[in-house]
Design a binder for these strands. Structure first.
Length: 365
DNA sequence: AAGTCGGGGGA
DNA sequence: TCCCCAGACTT
């Protein structure tokens, strides 16, 4: 596979499953076949193509890498490890993957799967930090001394990863079916279930947030360009969902609450959306949201300042584009828009009976 | 060395 | 529910 495809797929695959990546990768290649096309792309659209994959800094870095490859390397990926490692988003693992998988070089790589395989194979003991060097040394040594590894480093590396993903699983490894079983020191000592040790995970914090999906008035039938739009704010270039767009929202405890802001803007509340939960690795979002109507088209044409809510830009986006591939939304933002555009079957457009208001988050009590 | 960054799928 | 994942970057 060519270098561009390897870099794109490896960046997508970081902390992400193959099945999830497949469709994204196909769409990506169709949209930007190579480095020059990606380098010329707008970051906004790059993020939009990444929507749902998570870890959005990977997309920003991939875009920056494309620019660097074009401007500093003549459009060709360097083979040198140090030069590759200097590209944004390419760490030790990805450098090894590119050099072995794209260039066929005898370069080692250690990802989560390989680390687990090698840790058991050689019965390495220690915490994550102290094991990093020994793991890479083992991986590099094998590429020097093992015949099959030297003959085909790419296949060797992929085999190691595949072994970890299928047979040498985190829990209940299938040692009976393992081609390494005869050499595995952990298995010989009966330690295959305790090596590597299970790491403790920090509890995720609960966050309460409220969002406002503000819609412009429906079209008057004259094709008014300001009709049927939704207000989106762009998040800062760092932090969670960096650079992505979403309906304006605020977490509980923010200096300016969303309700205050919406009232000050004169938005007319239409209805509440069903409460939804959005789970991240370190945070659990309990999200409430309301649908609001902008007073008139004049409001829509005027500038909206979302900076008090922490956004760096604001935009009235046509609804079709907001859910298309034009705007980089977070998955949460996507879910909010989809919920707001539902025909409100359950909420009865706000005019229904009281039974429609039951889907509130349970009170913490 | 520790914290941060998303999201989905399987046990 | 909990746990894990084809990691990299910042502090």
């Amino acid at each position: 596979m060519d270098g561009y495809s390897v870099v794109v797929s490896e960046l997508m695959l970081q902390q992400t499953r193959v099945d999830t990546v497949l469709d994204y990768f196909k769409r990506w290649k169709a949209r930007w076949p190579g480095w020059p096309e990606l380098a010329a792309a707008e970051l906004d659209e790059v993020l939009a193509q990444w929507t749902g994959l998570g870890y959005y800094n990977r997309a920003r870095n991939l875009h920056r890498t494309a620019i660097a490859v074009v401007q500093q390397h003549g459009g060709q990926l360097p083979h040198d490890a140090a030069q590759l490692g200097a590209l944004p988003g390419l760490g030790p693992y990805t450098v090894g993957a590119v050099r072995s998988l794209a260039f066929g070089l005898p370069a080692a790589l250690v990802d989560g799967n390989v680390a687990r395989v090698l840790t058991r194979w050689h019965a390495l003991v220690g915490d994550g930090g102290t094991l990093i060097k020994p793991l890479w040394q083992k991986a590099e040594l094998e590429l020097e001394v093992s015949g099959p590894a030297r003959a085909d480093p790419a296949s060797w590396n992929q085999a190691l990863m595949e072994l970890g993903a299928t047979v040498c699983s985190p829990r209940k490894p299938q040692c009976a079916a393992c081609p390494v079983a005869q050499h595995c020191l952990a298995l010989a000592q009966g330690l295959q279930d305790s090596i590597p040790p299970v790491k403790q995970r920090a509890a995720s914090a609960e966050v309460q947030a409220h969002y406002a999906v503000v819609l412009s008035p429906a079209s008057s039938g004259l094709g008014d360009p300001l009709a049927d739009r939704v207000l989106l704010g762009q998040r800062p270039p760092t932090g969670r969902w960096a650079g992505l767009w979403e309906p304006p929202g605020a977490e509980q405890g923010d200096p300016q609450t969303l309700q205050q802001w919406a009232k000050a803007q004169g938005w007319q509340p239409l209805r509440d959306l069903p409460a939804l939960q959005h789970v991240l690795t370190h945070r659990k979002y309990a999200v409430t949201a309301g649908v609001y109507a902008a007073a008139d088209l004049g409001t829509v044409s005027a500038e909206v300042d979302l900076q008090p809510l922490g956004y760096v830009a604001a935009r009235w986006q046509p609804l079709g584009q907001a859910l298309g591939a034009v705007t980089g939304l977070s998955r949460l933002g996507q879910r909010l828009l989809e919920a707001a555009l539902q025909p409100a079957a359950e909420d009865g457009q706000g005019s229904g009976p009281a039974t429609t208001k039951r889907r509130r988050p349970p009170s913490p009590a």
